[in-house]
Design a binder for these strands. Structure first.
Lengths: 255, 255
DNA sequence: ACAAAAGTGTTACGGTTACACCCATGC
DNA sequence: GCATGGGTGTAACCGTAACACTTTTGT
């Protein structure tokens, strides 16, 4: 027999219908949303979930257990969606406007999942949401949808579809924060595989900053920081000079 | 007869004992704390409250009305403490660790105010707190204590006493944020009177950054930003050249 | 040999530093 | 005049920009 931890937002239901998070397990009125960034090799992307039978897109999020640190709740949520354990994670803003309170939306999502809930159900209450962004290695991850959604997939940040509630605003603010942190923290290391070329690193910078950088200047600036270790060359089979592979020195976690 | 708005945390009580915030008016488990900075002319200071009969110091804070935007709740709290209306305000972090849940502390505070509350009282619950910092003009303000505290006063940030719960950590993070924002946003203008000397402005910078700056370099850097307007000289009666007074150009609010 | 991309050398430019000097003020 | 602190001129210094050039790779 399998023991299911209280923290898990979903529990087994023999009628195939996923059961809902239980009111008594979570802090009411408080949620989190995470903007999970990955870099495909060319483009900066985020993970979005699509709710069953609605075509609505939303950020992955969740609730905070009554006996759980806020930060731990978010890590748990990320673990469930990505399978990853040690993730670069940063809280950036808490959204608490009344305008984000639209119970009809959650009611429709629940109804599309076969749940008719009473108007007083806690999931239809007003929620204040603490937003985090995470940086993960795109190629290491197979995202898993949650109980209410049938897919979770990558979307280009520079061509995002419409999202529910204020989630577009949340992404926008995440990008701004990421941008302003790109130099202060070694943010980009969390988006790249262990070994990468300077060109790839530059592409991460360009995707985050939203502008082209000068090749030679970038190379020298990065190398002068003395945070990269040079390894063997990467032969791509293309008819030009092979670039060196680099890794970040030490086991810094980018803070 | 005086009408008392639902939002006000305290209502009149004929037995002199202040009555408590009402459970049904506020979002449970959610609070805010504000780190209110002022500059005395020499030192950077924050406002702290001392609870009745406990000698405990804490940041001014409050709860969020059920029909109130989070940001509005904080502005309301600031208005009540400082009397000021248009305040530079920035959210910087949400504190949600279980470690900050210490019901005995709130119970003691309430008891010292003559309230015996049941163990299930909502004010003794776990709270997640959204923290803001505010920048105000020290000389324009006469802080007012709230219902539970008998004083509110300025304390030097570089010599803070012990605070309750995780409030020291909150102040620390506020200072870090302020420091990293000092150049990106025109933060300092909110801490100075309308007209000030460059020396005063430099002192604000030094207080925030925690280091001495070079006089001539600072002067030129600031002037080269082209954000200051020069006015008449300030004669101090001292036996040396009188410095010019400056003001910030336009009516920028420092974002 | 050629094209394409990586890597490096050289000079120019712009902002910051360091230090000197001059200016204004009250005693 | 003198001490004190404000304001400015100047040359050195340093990081970035601009551009040219060399090197490496596969066809």
């Amino acid at each position: 027999m399998r023991i299911i931890p209280t923290y898990l937002a979903t529990i087994y239901n023999p009628e195939q219908k996923m059961s809902l998070p239980l009111e008594n397990d979570f802090i009411p009125h408080l949620a989190f949303d995470s903007v999970i960034f990955g870099f495909s090799g060319e483009k900066l992307k985020i993970l979005l979930m699509e709710y069953h039978n609605t075509a609505w897109l939303a950020l992955p999020g969740g609730f905070v257990g009554k006996n759980e640190n806020l930060n731990d709740a978010v890590r748990r949520g990320l673990q469930e969606r990505t399978g990853l354990d040690k993730i670069y994670l940063e809280q950036f803003y808490t959204f608490g406007d009344l305008a984000r309170f639209k119970p009809e939306i959650m009611q429709t999502i629940l109804a599309a999942n076969g749940h008719q809930v009473a108007a007083e159900n806690w999931m239809l209450d007003r929620f204040v949401s603490v937003a985090y962004y995470a940086l993960i290695n795109y190629h290491e991850v197979e995202p898993k949808p949650d109980a209410l959604s049938d897919s979770i997939a990558w979307y280009d940040v520079d061509a995002l579809p419409e999202l529910i509630l204020d989630h577009s605003e949340i992404v926008k603010k995440a990008l701004e924060t990421l941008k302003s942190n790109i130099d202060r923290k070694l943010v980009s290391m969390n988006l790249l595989p262990p070994r990468f070329t300077i060109k790839e690193l530059q592409q991460v910078y360009e995707a985050i900053l939203g502008e082209k950088l000068r090749r030679t200047t970038f190379q020298r600036k990065i190398l002068s920081l003395d945070i990269l270790e040079r390894h063997e060359k990467l032969y791509s089979g293309k008819s030009h000079k092979a670039p060196f592979l680099y890794s970040f020195k030490g086991n810094q976690m980018g803070n």
